[in-house]
Each structure stands twice: as C-alpha cells, then as structure tokens.
C-alpha cells in the first residue's frame, strides 16, 4: 500500500507545533520570520481585460492596508480554488475591514493563463485584485525567489500539462515585508485571524 501524507493532514498536525495555538486575539496563525521576506522592491506586469496594456505592479500594500499574494494557475482544480475560496470567505466575515485587503494573483502558468482567463477567474473570488502575468520566466523566477516560491510547468508524454507550485499565501505590508505566510489549509478562520490582527497592528502604529 502506497503511503501518502496529504497536505491538509500536514497543516493540521504542524500548525500548532510550529506556530503555537492562537489562543488570543493578537496571535498570528501564519508563519512569521525573525527576518521577514522583503518583496517591496520587486515588480511584475499587471494585466487587464479591457486592453492590451500592462502596468508594473510592485509587491507592497497601500498605506494602512495589506496585500495578499498567491501563486497559482486558473486550471488548478484543487489547491488554488480552495485557497481563494478561503480568502473570499475570510473577507466576507471581516465586513468593511475587507476593503483594506488587496489581492495579487501571480500565474505560474502564463502561457495558458491569458488576461482573458485571469480576470474572470479572479473576479469570482474578489472585487479588488491584481492579475499578475509575465511570460519572461527568468523574471518570474527572480520574483518567486524573493518569496521563496517554486513552480514548474511540464508536459508529459501524453500531452498533459503538469503544474506544481508552492501553496503558501503571503501577507505583505506597505513596507513590502511579508508579515505572515499562510500555509495551504489554514482556512478562512486562520486567514481572518491574521488579517484582523495585522490590521489592528497597523492601527496601533505598526506598519
């Protein structure tokens, strides 16, 4: 019998061990680093449905807000829809505070994920988002390296495209620091918790 460990199991088991149980309203459930990842000087093209134009998108939140960055692809049937659905559910619970949460989705499968696919896909999950796409794979990799993200797109012998990618979502502040890394499976509760804690920190004088 083949032994497998599923992601949901890994997350459920490891979260309390790695990060402690978030038993109060000020604890983050995502992972934090003593030296946070710095992504505020990195940028990639943002694409739009209504025109062929692109703008350069920099990975940092607007003042007093948070930016949540996902890496994924639109043909992903399990990981991406689950994470983005959790994100949507978390924002719905936050009421008006959700206006302070921005979303950037970086496609790791840019050759299939055109702007025409990305925009309707993301509009299902958020009213406010940035569709990030580049076919310059060295540029994409350089940005992924800043987030410690990995991805691959390969085609097998039968012609099926196989995509792998890191499933973590990254919460970035207005200084371009990753202030919480949300593992796959953290769920709406975990996301809502961290967004709320971090927004409260901003109001209390943190960036």
């Amino acid at each position: 019998m083949r032994k497998t460990i599923h992601l949901a199991t890994i997350v459920l088991v490891s979260l309390p061990l790695l990060f402690g149980c978030a038993s109060d309203s000020t604890s983050l459930m995502g992972m934090t680093r003593e030296s946070p990842l710095e992504v505020g000087l990195t940028s990639l093209p943002e694409v739009f449905a209504s025109s062929d134009s692109e703008t350069s998108f920099t990975f940092k939140a607007e003042s007093d807000q948070l930016l949540v960055v996902f890496f994924g692809y639109t043909m992903c049937p399990d990981i991406c829809p689950t994470s983005l659905s959790d994100f949507r559910a978390a924002l719905r619970r936050m009421g008006s505070n959700s206006d302070r949460i921005d979303l950037a989705f970086v496609t790791v499968d840019p050759e299939r994920d055109t702007a025409e696919k990305l925009i309707p896909f993301l509009s299902t999950y958020a009213s406010r988002f940035h569709a990030i796409r580049t076919t310059d794979f060295s540029l994409l990799k350089s940005v992924q390296d800043k987030f410690l993200v990995r991805s691959s797109v390969t085609t097998d012998e039968s012609g099926h495209v196989q995509v792998t990618h890191t499933g973590t979502a990254f919460v970035v502040n207005s200084s371009g620091q990753v202030v919480s890394e949300l593992p796959f499976g953290i769920g709406p509760d975990g996301m809502e918790n961290d967004f709320t804690v971090l927004l409260n920190n901003i109001e209390n004088g943190d960036k």
């Binding site: 460990i5 599923h6 992601l7 990981i79 990995r150 196989q162 995509v163 792998t164």
Partner: peptide
C-alpha cells in the same frame, strides 16, 4: 480520481 501531494521541494502537485 486525483491526489494532491506535497513534493520534496515544498511545491504541491496533482496526479
């Protein structure tokens, strides 16, 4: 029937 698993490099894939 598919399975999502975590690879050694921390990425997730399906098969």
């Amino acid at each position: 029937v598919h399975e999502t698993t975590m690879n050694a490099d921390g990425t997730m894939g399906m098969q």
